[in-house]
Design a protein around this nucleic acid. Structure first.
Lengths: 247, 247
DNA sequence: ATCGGTCTGTGTGATAGCGCACAGAAATGA
DNA sequence: TCATTTCTGTGCGCTATCACACAGACCGAT
């Protein structure tokens, strides 16, 4: 696990590693960036619990976070994935403060964080900020909706493809540190189901995996195997959150 | 189908049949109510298509609307249910204008509608309105998330109980006009699956049905059979949207 | 009174995914 | 180096759900 707990310096340059921050107007970012704190997020860290209040919101840069719901009998299901395109903690500006799911770090990395109260002020006072966050929330809404559809109608193999593509889209590299056991928790299926599906994908030369390391070999191949859910979600993100304004 | 297409008079009294409208401060409602138009919504009417722009937003009073996603190969899945507790068309104030799902009338009735542009103005200018709509949207988010969980982990019978309870919560009466075929489309399962589950519920004395008419007999019984998803969603609505301020 | 359409019940396989059990291989740590 | 833990592969029976096919019951319209 590369994440250390030593403080890390940052600049406008690395701020732009999070798409939402990168899209903000310069004066807005100027106002915020002294309050932004770059923090390492180790694998498995819980950012918020079900029903737990958030002290900070997180803008991931290299980390990936999963929103998970855990049922009473211990089963789990991933509701959505959030990476450097988004933000963790929409409940703060939506006004509900908490949500009945939890946020867990799925892939270690970094995120900028901002005090909840501060972001709420910005949300109320700045129109560009509000528009940006609401459009992001709508994209999140679509991701959740499509997760429901996918859970209903598509095979484990298709869902695995979707999950891998969504994850690799949010990663700076082609390697993902993730055991089949963990993936099965995310998708809410058996570990053996993931083993089967992953083996097929490996035989087909689309990915390579080895004891918790998954390497992307053929993105197009995955896209050929995935269900429509992936592109529906991706198109919605692209439409609602067009490319960052400045580099 | 009782809905006619003749205009219907309305007053503050009936406005309060929609919880969101009822929760608005008096001066806000005063400003809006001349622009609100009561319209009948017949069963099966499509309020918006996937990707379609909305000219109006709808505040259901007695109607129930389903948000549905239809897959490329014609299968469908309900994303959420909206009745007199909510509004149709969140994409308008969230800023995305359209969504990749469709809204269909699941149970005939009435709704107030408001020009999209007008509501967008109110949303931008009125803090109470904004807070209210955003809190509602967060509740909707939870409903979608829980639909994903339920699709993953719970049996058809449990899901039918959830669906019936969510529907009856939004209906003024104990009777629902709905064939098993239609329910199966909503839940994204086979009609035979609904037949089996519904027969069990009828044998247990929880409901009574007959050629497209379903009567609620034992609400507590349904609640005893339903999965946790129902109460998770219900509690979230109650928490985020406390009882209307005035009657 | 009858006919045609709609709604529900039922049967018979097929299949995807589950639960469990265990084995071997690879990493880890003492 | 050896023991332990972690990760992946595999087999087997089980169940829920699916796909398809068809029958009977009910309803409304002519």
């Amino acid at each position: 696990m590369p994440a250390t707990h030593t403080p890390v310096s940052h600049s406008f340059h690395v701020l732009s590693q999070n798409d939402l921050l990168a899209t903000l107007p310069a004066d807005e970012l100027e106002r915020l960036h002294h309050h932004l704190e770059l923090v390492p997020l180790p694998l498995g860290e819980v950012i918020y619990e079900s029903g737990g209040k958030l002290s900070h919101l997180y803008f991931p840069t290299t980390a990936i976070i999963s929103l998970l719901y855990v049922t009473e009998d211990g089963a789990s299901a991933e509701i959505s994935i959030v990476g450097n395109e988004g933000i963790i903690g929409v409940a703060v500006f939506m006004g509900g403060d908490t949500m009945p799911n939890m946020a867990v770090v799925q892939s270690a990395g970094y995120a900028y964080r901002l005090k909840a109260q501060l972001l709420q002020q910005e949300f109320n006072n700045s129109l560009p900020m509000r528009h940006l966050l609401l459009r992001y929330t709508q994209a999140l809404l679509t991701q959740m909706a499509q997760t429901a559809v996918c859970n209903r109608h598509h095979s484990i193999e298709q869902q695995l493809c979707r999950w891998l593509l969504l994850s690799f889209d949010r990663l700076p590299s082609d390697e993902l540190i993730m055991t089949q056991e963990l993936i099965s928790n995310m998708l809410g299926v058996r570990r053996e189901g993931i083993t089967d599906a992953a083996r097929k994908l490996q035989s087909a030369g689309l990915i390579e995996y080895h004891r918790g390391h998954i390497t992307l070999l053929d993105r197009q191949g995955l896209e050929d195997n995935v269900c429509e859910c992936y592109s529906v979600v991706k198109k919605e993100y692209d439409r609602l959150l067009p490319d960052r304004i400045a580099t």
